[in-house]
Design a protein around this nucleic acid. Structure first.
Length: 477
RNA sequence: GGCGGCGUACCCAAGUGGUUAAGGGAGAGGUCUGCAAAACCUCCAUUCAGCGGUUCGAAUCCGCUCGCCGCCUCCA
């Protein structure tokens, strides 16, 4: 089997992945900003993060995964002096910033749960406001090494000193001249150059969240949280750092500068970036635009939210994906296909110790597709064909294989099977038995009555040759 | 102005130099079925935005044209 390969934005190539200290993989993924609900574009990114993590685990790696939660420092306009977005929402809703953040964090966790996205457990799911001391310590190192300078409006990182005027940005491949920084926005006159960015912001008395620092009361710049928390939990050089494509030119470029400026060591070995979910008009879905679809919209449209996970697998993470309710409905048919198979699987079939030998081909195709830069469309195709082949051959000894694939697909097929193979109330089981008997006696009138009774109690009934299966009716929110 | 990406069937999309252009959805026909629901079979792009070029061979490489989008400012 070929080892895992991934596209590294640093080299702009698909590379064989080799962690620094196998089998451990240190992985930092950019998490949510918590001043609004997460839209489906955000959720696509987290499905991607989850898929990457699960694929690494499938390859036998021990993934130490950190995700940050940005609950301070995102400005509405200018990166240095605009209003903090969390605070803006707090003012609008009459809450404290902490309350706003708590609310949207809880919602984020619920959304992830519905998509079977496994989040790191705290403290590895880490909040910026809980790590201000780490950030201050890091800024001190940067200043000591001569890359930061203190002014009345804040501490800034001196970009040109770090990389030189003409050097091309490592990630964005643009020279400083090409970036036209400052052309379209106002910046602090204290900055030596428009490219410089804030590490610590001072003298913003209206800002609600403030901390004491060696330079005075203030709050951290946006980029510093990721460097500080990444180093805190994963060390000064990590294996993988992921985020959206939009972070390449500013956020990640600046993270590299400040981190390597502070430590003198490489910050990240593999930078991985996911592409956007786009609306039907082909335009990017983003928080700053105003209206955007959220996970709850799917349930409102009668779609199982988990279908969104499979919908995401339909395109590679580096390709734009066009969102529409119909496209998610199409994915929901695939979800039902897997689910039906799992639910109807007899115990004898599920408990077979070894799967049929022909399943290996699909297993292999699945893993090779994922190991080839996370080609989820091909992996999904292999999984679908595995099930199709089982039906075709009338040989359902594929459960061990399917469960293995589900470790990445993340549909929870095992739990789905238990829905039809679990314990039901005695009266429900009795009704089912009575109905099976009526059917066997070809008393279809009676069978139909009993079906109605079961449905009234909230159970769905499906017949097959020898008998029937029942399951609680899916609640559509 | 700079940087980057995209255009494959009705829809979502793989494939990026070489046998018949994955897979799914929708659609059409069929098998099975008491009903309902599944499932299975068959069909569904001589063609990859357009035009040139390179090559024994291109959806895949190069050039041009048209159309669309992202980033350079908070954004996954």
């Amino acid at each position: 089997m070929k080892p895992f390969h991934i596209f590294n934005t640093l080299s702009r190539r698909v590379e064989e992945f080799q962690p620094l200290n196998p089998p451990v993989v240190t992985y930092y993924s950019c998490g949510p900003t918590v001043y609004l609900p997460q839209h489906l574009g955000n959720m696509r990114a987290y499905v991607f993060v989850d898929t990457l993590r699960r694929t690494l685990e499938l390859n036998g790696y021990d993934v130490r995964h950190v995700m940050n939660i940005t609950d301070v420092g995102h400005m509405t306009s200018d990166a240095d002096a605009g209003e903090d977005k969390v605070e803006k929402t707090a003012r609008a809703e009459g809450k404290t910033p902490r309350e706003v953040a708590d609310f949207y964090i809880a919602q984020f966790k619920r959304d992830c749960d519905q998509l079977n996205i496994r989040l790191p457990a705290p403290p590895l799911l880490c909040r910026a406001t809980d790590h201000v001391a780490d950030m201050i310590a890091l800024i001190e190192r940067i200043v000591e090494r001569g890359y930061g300078y203190v002014t009345p409006s804040g501490v800034y990182f001196e970009v040109e000193k770090w990389r030189g005027q003409s050097r091309v940005g490592r990630l964005s491949r643009q020279s400083l001249d090409e970036q036209h920084a400052g052309q379209r926005l106002e910046h602090s006159p204290d900055k030596k150059s428009p490219h410089d960015f804030a590490l610590w912001v001072l003298n913003q008395p209206h800002h609600l969240m403030q901390w004491e620092s060696p330079w005075g009361r203030g709050y951290p710049g946006w980029h510093i949280e990721c460097s500080a928390m990444s180093m805190r939990y994963l060390g000064e050089t990590i294996d993988i750092h992921s985020g959206g494509l939009d972070h390449i030119p500013v956020h990640h470029e600046n993270e590299i500068a400040q981190s390597e400026g502070a430590t003198g060591k490489p910050f990240v070995r593999y930078f991985v970036h996911n592409a956007f979910l786009v609306g039907m008009e082909g335009a990017k879905i983003s928080k700053s635009v105003g209206r955007f679809p959220v996970l709850g919209d799917l349930a409102a449209a009668g779609i199982n939210p988990l279908a969104f996970r499979l919908f995401c697998f339909g395109a590679k993470y580096r390709s734009e994906l066009a969102f529409s309710l119909d496209a998610v409905r199409a994915a929901e048919r695939n979800l039902d296909y897997f689910a039906e198979f799992a639910r109807n699987l007899a115990d004898a079939e599920a408990e077979a110790r070894a799967d049929s030998p022909w399943t290996q081909e699909f297993d292999q195709r699945f893993i090779e597709a994922l190991n080839n830069d996370l080609n989820t469309p091909q992996a999904l195709a292999a999984a679908l064909e595995l099930v199709g082949e089982a039906y075709r051959r009338g040989d359902k000894r594929i459960w061990n294989t399917l469960k293995k694939l589900d470790a990445v697909l993340g549909l929870g097929l095992d739990a789905m099977r238990k829905v039809t193979h679990g314990e039901f109330p005695a009266e429900v089981t009795a009704l089912q038995r009575a109905r099976d008997a009526a059917r066997a006696a070809r008393d279809f009138k009676r069978a139909d009555e009993l079906r109605k009774e079961l449905e009234a109690k909230g159970y769905e009934v499906k017949d097959h040759r020898g008998g029937s299966t029942i399951m609680p009716r899916r609640r559509v929110a």
